[in-house]
Design a protein around this nucleic acid. Structure first.
Length: 508
RNA sequence: GCUCGGUUGGUGUAGCCCGGCCAAUCAUGCGGGCCUUUCGAGCCUGCGACGUGGGUUCGAAUCCCACACCGAGCACCA
């Protein structure tokens, strides 16, 4: 039935309802991919946290956390904590540089945490709450091997240690803190429901022994470390977090932590889970450990290699943090997995920088052609949309370099942008003196060029590897970090301006 | 195996809770046109989607059931 038919039918059956529908006004809300936070009205202040694991510099996927949480912070005038969840000195060993790198990355994205803490500074606090939990009968020390416990748990059967009295548990837990056990010998478990239908929630481990000292000197003396679910559960309460936003891999985490909150009679924060992000356009898998490995093997030049899907790499290419945030926010917070199109980041970035970016010529792998009978210089505009910024002056000392694909067949003309029309005769470009109508009416192509002598040899580093070529002499006026648009090539960030000039390609 | 999520154009997203101006929004992408001394910007325009099958209903993207497919958890990782 077509909509028109449906309306007709409705008019027969229930004319009042039809009138109501017609009266309902369409609210044209602003485009808002994020939507409102759940139950936001119930809180005086929206308090959120970023909870990075400082095991390496950030890739593009990691940026989603500050992008979304930071955007909500701005929207609700909320509060944002950066808490380093660095409670595994062994298998997810923190990288001491990463703490600072991550804070830099957050700043690059345009946000500032209201507070920064490290879980590894807070072991005594976690111990205190663990003791309290034991007093409440909510935890027990367990000396089952991981395998044994796993089998019992999967069968829904308690292990013998579950029945221990509180005093014994407390003694053994104090001994754990004192470092009197070896790794693997004992854990502290939260007593949940051993017959819970979801096996992932049954009596989960809260503390375990780790011999490897924490890389941070302040925390190197501890041997008894909390598991994320315990540490983060306690901290979220202590920091009065109102909204937790994190990945679907932590969905069961929330369910586990609710048992903790019930023992302490706390109220669990609102929680939003999102799916995984993949990025098109990169050959390198977006994973901290993979990138770390490729750098170690020399496959990548470093964290800022343009081929690496890292924030450092995008930053090096001159892409604004704001563009990354805007593309990531656009993904919303759905629980299904999403692909981020890098072109969305480019589109956002182009929008941000196009107006302010000066134009310049860069000829890739050029061929030299003598120019005869023409003027001494070309004067293309600094920015085609803003006459007031003036023209560049590019000298022509008898010859220019153009890209091979731009050389017209013999006898044909080409317009050297900002200079004039030339005809390819034998092996030279002969100035023709044609007016711009040649371009407008006669389809003469417009190309970029640089002088053969006075130019700037430059390497443009791209995602597909380096490209060598020559830029116009005026490029020397630019300094590292400046962004230019190489006409007909794309935007680029100047990285070094000396004998070996280097720029990083951003996008078309 | 047990448990928990998800599935709207090439990509992302809105709509789903509370069925009806939804032959489905917006963005990006791609194509065409205009403009332009850039393959950029701008303007105009086009392309393109409700996983499958049943059910409920006057009416289903929306509610119910089944199936398919994708993902996550069941770590002494985060």
């Amino acid at each position: 039935m077509s909509p028109a038919e449906r309306r007709e039918r409705l008019a027969e059956l229930d004319p009042d309802r039809l009138t109501e529908l017609t009266a309902e006004t369409e609210t044209d809300e602003d485009h808002d991919p994020l939507g409102e936070l759940p139950n936001a009205d119930a809180y005086d202040e929206i308090r959120m946290r970023l909870a990075p694991n400082p095991n390496g510099p950030w890739h593009l996927g990691n940026a989603r956390m500050p992008a979304v949480i930071g955007t909500y912070k701005d929207r609700y005038d909320g509060w944002m904590l950066c808490r380093f969840d660095d409670t595994d000195p062994e298998t997810k060993r923190p990288d001491l540089d990463a703490y600072g790198d991550i804070l830099d990355a957050i700043e690059y994205l345009g946000f500032e945490p209201d507070a920064v803490i490290r879980a590894s500074d807070r072991l005594e606090t976690y111990y205190e709450y663990a003791r309290e939990l034991i007093e409440l009968g909510g935890a027990y020390t367990c000396t089952c091997s991981a395998e044994t416990f796993s089998e019992l748990k999967n069968a829904g059967e308690p292990c013998p240690h579950r029945a221990k009295d509180i005093e014994t548990v407390m003694e053994e837990f104090e001994a754990m803190i004192a470092g009197e056990y070896d790794p693997g010998d004992i854990v502290l478990r939260v007593r949940t429901d051993i017959e819970h239908k979801n096996p992932a929630l049954r009596d989960w481990a809260a503390f375990r022994m780790i011999d490897t000292p924490h890389p941070r000197e302040e925390a190197a003396g501890y041997r008894c470390w909390p598991i994320l679910d315990f540490q983060s559960g306690i901290d979220d309460q202590l920091m009065e977090i109102s909204h937790i936003i994190r990945g679907i891999d932590l969905q069961d985490s929330a369910r586990r932590q609710r048992f903790l909150y019930e023992y302490f009679d706390w109220e669990y924060p609102e929680v939003v889970h999102w799916g995984h992000v993949q990025i098109d356009a990169y050959d390198v898998k977006m994973s901290t450990s993979t990138i770390k490995g490729l750098i170690a093997e020399g496959e990548l030049d470093g964290w800022d290699d343009p081929r690496a899907p890292t924030l450092a790499s995008l930053r090096k290419r001159g892409i604004q943090g704001e563009a990354i945030v805007s593309a990531l926010v656009e993904l919303g917070t759905s629980t299904s997995d999403v692909d981020l199109a890098l072109s969305a980041v480019y589109a956002a970035n182009r929008e941000l920088i196009d107006d302010d970016t000066d134009r310049a010529f860069f000829v890739r792998d050029g061929v030299e052609k003598p120019v005869v009978n023409g003027p001494d210089a070309g004067t293309p505009p600094v920015h085609p949309d803003y006459d007031e910024r003036g023209d560049r002056t590019i000298p022509v000392d008898g010859a220019v370099v153009v890209e091979p694909a731009d050389v017209p067949p013999n006898g044909e003309r080409v317009w050297l942008k900002g200079y004039g029309c030339v005809r390819h005769t034998r092996d030279a470009f002969e100035f023709t003196g044609d007016g711009i109508d040649a371009v407008r009416e006669e389809d003469v192509p417009v190309v970029h060029w640089v002088p053969a002598d006075e130019n700037v040899p430059l390497t443009l580093r791209t995602m597909d590897g380096p490209v060598t070529g020559h830029a116009e002499p005026g490029l020397r006026e630019y300094a590292p970090d400046d962004i230019v648009q190489f006409e007909r090539v794309g935007f680029a960030r100047i990285d070094a301006m000396n004998d070996d000039a280097v720029a990083y390609f951003a996008h078309p």
